[in-house]
Each structure stands twice: as C-alpha cells, then as structure tokens.
Design a protein around this nucleic acid. Sequence first.
DNA 1: CCACTAATGCTCGTTATGAGCATAACTATT
DNA 2: AATAGTTATGCTCATAACGAGCATTAGTGG
Lengths: 304, 304
Amino acid sequence: MPPSIDVELNAVILAVSDEVPRVLTVSGPAGVPALPSGRLDIRQDRTLDRALRRWVLEQTGLRVGYVEQLYTFGDQNRHPEERAGGPRVLSIAYLALVREEVPSNGAGWRDVYAHFPLEDHRNDRPGALAAEVLPRIEQWIGTAAGADEARLRRERAQAAFGLDTTPWDPVRALERYELLYEVKAAAEASGGMAAGQPMVLDHRRMLAAALGRLRGKLTYRPVVFEMLPEQFTLLQLQSLVESLAGTRLHKQNFRRLVERGGLVEGTGKLSASTGGRPPELFRFRREVLIERPRPGLGVPGGRS
Amino acid sequence: MPPSIDVELNAVILAVSDEVPRVLTVSGPAGVPALPSGRLDIRQDRTLDRALRRWVLEQTGLRVGYVEQLYTFGDQNRHPEERAGGPRVLSIAYLALVREEVPSNGAGWRDVYAHFPLEDHRNDRPGALAAEVLPRIEQWIGTAAGADEARLRRERAQAAFGLDTTPWDPVRALERYELLYEVKAAAEASGGMAAGQPMVLDHRRMLAAALGRLRGKLTYRPVVFEMLPEQFTLLQLQSLVESLAGTRLHKQNFRRLVERGGLVEGTGKLSASTGGRPPELFRFRREVLIERPRPGLGVPGGRS
DNA sequence: CCACTAATGCTCGTTATGAGCATAACTATT
DNA sequence: AATAGTTATGCTCATAACGAGCATTAGTGG
C-alpha cells in the first residue's frame, strides 16, 4: 500500500477587542489551544476556501468574511502520528479577519501576545527581551561552528530583533519565532517569561506567520477595516492598528495619513463620548481602492 | 476505495536576458509549454522545497537558488483526468529567481510577455489594450445582471487596468489575468493579439501570480540581485527592474534611490564599454538587509 | 575635430514624514 | 461656576524623499 497524503486546513482567525489582538482557538489534546482545522474532504469541498469555511463554521460557529491563503506547510514529521505509520499531512494555513463575535462549541478568543510576549512593543520593549532572550541569543551566536556561521547568526539576530542600529521591524514576527525556536533547541531550555504559551503542533508557527503577514499587509492594503464596525472613531482605528502592529503611532500624524490618504470620510455624527471631547464617527472609503494603487496604514518605515 | 489526493509542485523560474523576462518551460502535451512540475513523493521528499528542486533538476538540469512559495491551488477539476476518476490534484506553485543559464532536456526559456502581451508597458501601453481589450470589457460590464453587479465590474476593471484617473499598477498582474479570463469566458472568444500564448492547464495563472508577486516584492526586498551577476552596472540593474516591472524608470532618480538607499556599492572597476562612457561596476551590499527594515527598488508608487 | 552614446553630477519644486505646540469640546470634581 | 482631567482636532516646522530636468563627462566611430 502506497503511503498516502492528507491535506489539512488551518485557520488563523484574528479580531481585536479591548486593544488586544485575539486569535480564535479550539481546545486541542490536553486542553492545549489549537487553531480551528480539519481535513480536506475532496468529495464535498470543491475549493480549499470552502473547506476552510466549512470547518470553521463547524468548530466555532463563525462565518468568516475576509480570508487569505497564508502558506502551505509540508515538512515531514510535523504530525507525530506520521512516525507511527500515519499519512503525510500537508497543512494549508489561512488568515481570516473578523469583528469579534462570541463563538460556540467551546471555541474562544485568546490574546495573541500571550503566545508571543516579545511582539508587543506598545509600552516600550518587553523586559524579557533584554533580560532573557538576548543573552541566550548571544550564547547561541557564541556556540556557532566557525566564524562564518557566527557572523550569519549575528546578522540574522540583528535583523530579526533590531539590535544595534537596526530598527525593530514588526513584520518580522515569523523570523523571530523561527530564530527563537532554533535558539531554544540549541539551549535545550524552554521556560521563561519570553517563551509564550504553547499551542498544538506547529500552530504557533502559523500564528506567527499570520501576524507577520498581516502587519506587512496593513501598509499597502486597507484590510483593517474588516475588523471594524461600519462606523468608527479615528482613535478606534488607530488603536486597532497599534494593537496589531504592536507599536505606538503618533496620533496627529496618523490622522493626517488616514484622512489625506482618502481612506476614511467623516459622517457628520459624533460618537457617544467616553472621556473627553466627543469624536466624530468615520467610515471607510471603498473608493480609495480604485483611486490609489496600494493604499494602506500601518507601521511607519524606518528611514535611512 | 476512497478518492485520493495527489500533490504536485510547480516552479515558475524566472530570469532576464536581453531586456526580456523569461520563464523556464518544458514541453507539455501537444508541445504546449508547461512549467517544470512533478508529484510530491513522500517517500523521498522530506520537504516541499526539496521536492521542487528535485523535479526542476530532473526536468531542466538547473539548480535553483532563491525559491519562495507562491500559492496552493486546490479547486476541483483543474486537471482534466480528475473527471475521469483520477485523484484530486493539489498544486503548490513556487517562484524561483535565477541568472539565465542554458537548460537541458529540451527545456527552454520563453518570453514572459509573449504570454501576457498587456503586461509590458515599457514602450507606451500595448495597443491591444485600447483596441481589443477595453471594448470587450465595456461589453462585459454592460451585460452584468443588475446595476450593482455592473458597478462592481466597473470598479474591478478600473482598478485592474488603470482606467480613468486610476494609475496602472504593475503588481496587479494576477487580477488582470483573472478578469480577462472571466471576460473571455463571458464573450466565448479567445483570439486576438491581446490573448497571449497559452500554457498547459492553469500554468499561465501561476505565471501571472508569480509576476505580480515578484513585482510587489521588488519594492521591499532586494530580490533582483538573485538575477544579476556578482558585478553589474547600474544600467543593467535598472533595465532588469524595468523588464520585470514592465515600466520605464527615471535613470538619475533610480541611481539615487539605489545608491543612497545603500543597496549597492561601487567597485572602482569599469565595465568594458559598449556604446558611450564606460560605466562603473557595482556590487550588491548585503549589509543593507540588516540596516533597513524593508529595502527595495521597483515601481514608484502613484502619489495621491 | 565632430557627432553620438551612455554615465554621472546637480538643482528645483513638491510631497511625505516625524515631532511638537496649541486649542477645542466634552466629563467629573471641588 | 470654576477647575482639572481627557480626548479630539488644527496647525507649524524642519527634514527627507520623490519626480522631473539640465548640464557635464568620458568614452566610441568617423
């Protein structure tokens, strides 16, 4: 009997509430959180998209709108059953963006930064970075075999973590995750504040890929609006972007960017005020999609 | 017997020579060009990457360097044998960039723009656009069911083809391909100068995806250098980018961008002159990767 | 020496970006 | 009612990046 292939779909479904980006998870083995996922059933799933939506609906009760394919993972032995003679499993990961809703079937929203404590730089850099991570990375560089390998490692670390004069780049979330994975493997240690909560199998890698991809996409596609209600205040919009990017933005400049970029338009209405002066409500200007080639928000780029 | 799944890898391998971007093809059924591709063999291919390289080597004799996963296609009936009870085929498309080399086994390089005549705007817009394509698109918009559908179609066309005041965006190659595909299906016609040479199955779609992806990537990652020799002149670099983007660039500004962006450094050497003043030879500055978060070249964005 | 070609240097006006200061319009408190 | 606290919004300023050109340099082939 020829060894067979199974194709699995995984959904990284993101929403933001209370300034916290959240990922939708179901409960995996031993209660460890897992991404909603399931096998492609070629008898009923005519497209990968549909298969994904089917599984998400089944496992969480959610109907997702914006969906985008992320990456296909196919390395050997990603699934433990494979070693026991099970089929080779290919995983196609998707990114979906939604407004937060209450899921069913015991699925729930989890803080993305609980899984990646190093990714949230909104209130200065996470202490664990300097305290735990960098020393361990130095050590990893030190134990490289040969000067060339050491230089390569140093460059990777520098680019990924924004050491020295290199700026921190929120987009590099996946690189950081993979680098840390290597470092930890090398150090045979895994605890510490910096580690972050685990997920089933390689689901955390998928989440890192999704976060990086989304952060990048923000800058040239107005995808955030998928996560906002029809009408919103500029502060809501800004803190949404900040939550996702894990970075603070200059308020007035953000407003300028968004307004002069034609991304939003004011509705004359004001929002019910919470603290100070009541803000105006805005709505997304869909037209911007056909006015400008690549409209976006997001992380200001480091100038040279 | 449960219906089974086959996983296939496809390589879009690009190089540029004589100002023409070229794709590496093998000969498919009836001599129609096809991308190098082959089945994933889970007994010997530990990773998707390796499988891809194996097939490419086998079919073309090339060892590719830079490789990046593009997209996984999984719709039903993309392969005709499926209807005849064959397995469902999933295709994972990759993009690879190389310096042009002579392939073996009858593989060969084909002009990318022979497949997409509308994508080359280096010497003003292709005539076929205004002459053939736009009228047909107008007609397609006209036959929409309902005003809403018509508006959606018009917006899609406007964004994809840069109608009206919308600028032409080289990155949208895939969108254009898909829109034309729909239009042609609707019009039940397929000839004309604008059509472009066909490829096997949906390989042309993969090529369009690759072209769009590469064009986008140029702007934030210095991937072009994968396609250049160790040392090169700035004109070589520029015309390479122009070939890929299908757009002309301002020479002096391009030079400024590239030099002040720290992407290249001069070697004091001069190139053997062809026409006029002999140009200096430059080399890629790898360091830029760790100095700036997202260094790139490429298509200048349309300002608002 | 001349015509031609491509490389390189430099300028100018316009826009975009990063950083702040100042004011306006509310709510809660004294 | 004045005051303090809070958020929204308007505006300025210096610097950097961008788009477009002009001018000069250094080769080639007559």
